[in-house]
Design a protein around this nucleic acid. Sequence first.
DNA 1: ACCTGAACACCGTTCAAGT
DNA 2: ACCTGAACACCGTTCAAGT
Lengths: 192, 192
Amino acid sequence: MSNGKRQAMSAANWIRAGYDAFHDGGVDAIAVERVAKRLSATKGSFYWHFKDRESLVRAVLELWRAETEEIIDQLAAITEPRERLLRLFELVTSQIPTDRSEIDLLARGDQPAVAAVLEDVSRRRITFMSAAFREAGLRPVDADDAAVQAYALWIGLLQLQVNLPGTVPAGKDRDRFLRSTRELLGQLIPAP
Amino acid sequence: MSNGKRQAMSAANWIRAGYDAFHDGGVDAIAVERVAKRLSATKGSFYWHFKDRESLVRAVLELWRAETEEIIDQLAAITEPRERLLRLFELVTSQIPTDRSEIDLLARGDQPAVAAVLEDVSRRRITFMSAAFREAGLRPVDADDAAVQAYALWIGLLQLQVNLPGTVPAGKDRDRFLRSTRELLGQLIPAP
DNA sequence: ACCTGAACACCGTTCAAGT
DNA sequence: ACCTGAACACCGTTCAAGT
């Protein structure tokens, strides 16, 4: 358990530098040569600590996963399922005007390292919503459907936000749009 | 207007080969070196006909744009706006289980050549829907919102379909899911 | 007018050779 | 144990030189 200081340090250094690169330039920026330059190290050094680029991407995205887990933990504390869903919809719709990293990950979903963590996180979110819909009174299959539809609308809006700026209203129209979107999502929740 | 046969032929050859590559392997497959190999030509030859890779991508995606235009033309023939929207929802939801190229384009939206055509096509679709919602009785701002929400749900589902196979129900659950999705979209249409 | 071939700057990956 | 440096196979782009 105790450690010779250099060795463990170094792998963590590469991951930290990769995480910074990810936030600056997305998944593509987690590039061996560029990260090596950032650290004033050589590519050869990298391949001592990691099998390949994919391992580094995987390690960096593990950090991202941990961040998203916290949000679910907070929501889980709300016991009333309708309230929990409405709070969730409020949370994610208000994030829509800002979040970019999420879409970058969706766009790189063809890379296995990205696909792995993306699948995990998405299924986690969908399962979480489905459970709430069930608690709120939907039959299991309908709860699953509703969760998938809500999630699709969510990431679809993120996608439009990033890819087609101007389609998702900003400024003074923003509030009206987000309210109306929450209403649409609210249609998925059965009446008490 | 009339032509020396080699010259015009050659540029068109590159575009056709690029279009094939696009269908086989997505936007990334429109790569100068690989397409050159396909044609048994050199990269140098390519740069005689095109300024850069981006010009080729642009030319290839023009073909894709033309294909999507046809669908809108068909729907425009339906005069009753509610019927037109329902038919559209039916059309796009039934495509969800198969379409991949659309998502590949969304994923490469960071490339200017892709962004350009993607924006055009998307705005065209959203405008088309918004007009129908307005004809069906919504106020202009609400019609715009509804169109954006419908489109977001659509591409969100495409995204899940491709990135997270298994979340969008297939097989015997497929029909129930698509029906319920059409119902949710139908909520956006005002009562007659 | 059209094309070849080599060069250059980027990637990822490997590996002998050094410390 | 850890790293360097050079090599290789891919990219895109440029350009002198050929026909």
